[in-house]
Design a protein around this nucleic acid. Structure first.
Lengths: 146, 146
DNA sequence: ATCTACGCTCTCTTTTTAGTAAGTATAAAT
DNA sequence: ATTTATACTTACTAAAAAGAGAGCGTAGAT
């Protein structure tokens, strides 16, 4: 996505009517970034890497691969590259003989983690409701009246 | 720079150490739900449907398919079913002769949208930073010092 | 001399996901 | 009699993503 011209607008506006706002115009670039962002965070590894780095601070590749259970080297590399590209992590290469590469979160990365706290809290608060809804749905067929 | 240990935090419990909390135990069910949730929200349709329903209120299937540009019937059905199963939308079938089915958000669905506002706001506030990071990454190779 | 560790990259295969298009039922409209 | 509208479902196909596993370069340990 080539970032085209951008007229000065960086007001923290709430998304659409999700917060009750009228259906006013939204910056398509923001929308696109949000989608990319969510998509990125959605692939099961990014959040796990984010957590691992948040918990353990600067961490080397191999250790990270052990901290994130089940991740393959390929996926870990890929995830870290994406995160680095987006400015979420810093990759520090120490030019020593067995390679030593350390990763740590940037403030941006940390703030993204914090931003997702809302979702996390939602999940904790509504876990029971979601599970109940699923049970109900799975028991009776999908059809029901309100 | 990283927000380290923070005793006596008055805010709601933040996930893991993403906000500097110690690596205390987390309910694996919550973690799983969060992952599912994020994955669900990540598929490009769920959020769009959520938005459309938030903006337009109770809406019929066909209208919804027009409100969400590019969605196929299959994907829309799938998305709505998942959302219904999770208790995010209510599906009301009117047993009339050309089928009439209406969908609307539950409070749960609305609150999920609200929960994601944090991410949206983050994206808006950090759009420039992410784009700058990407430009930097794409220009110079991936290697750099902090 | 061989082996191990590290942080990858590359290729190949398998799995998952998404899109397309057709089919279904029914009653009213033409 | 045929067409239209609605809300799907199903089968098929194409594309994307993920996993497995080998290879690489070098230096220190054995």
């Amino acid at each position: 996505m080539p970032p085209p011209e951008r007229p000065g607008d960086d007001r923290p506006q709430l998304p659409h009517s999700l917060a009750g706002a009228p259906p006013n115009e939204i910056d398509p670039r923001v929308e696109e970034l949000v989608n990319q962002l969510i998509a990125r965070v959605a692939d099961k590894w990014t959040m796990l890497v984010l957590e691992a780095l948040a918990e353990h601070g600067e961490t080397r590749f191999t250790r990270l691969s052990r901290l994130v259970p089940g991740v393959s080297q390929k996926m870990l590399t890929q995830t870290l590259r994406q995160m680095e590209r987006d400015g979420l992590v810093v990759r520090t290469v120490h030019p020593v003989v067995p390679p030593k590469v350390e990763y740590r979160l940037t403030i941006l990365g940390q703030s993204l983690g914090a931003a997702f706290c809302g979702v996390w809290i939602w999940a904790e608060q509504n876990l029971a409701a979601v599970e109940a809804a699923r049970r109900g749905f799975d028991l009776r067929g999908s059809t029901k009246q309100d």
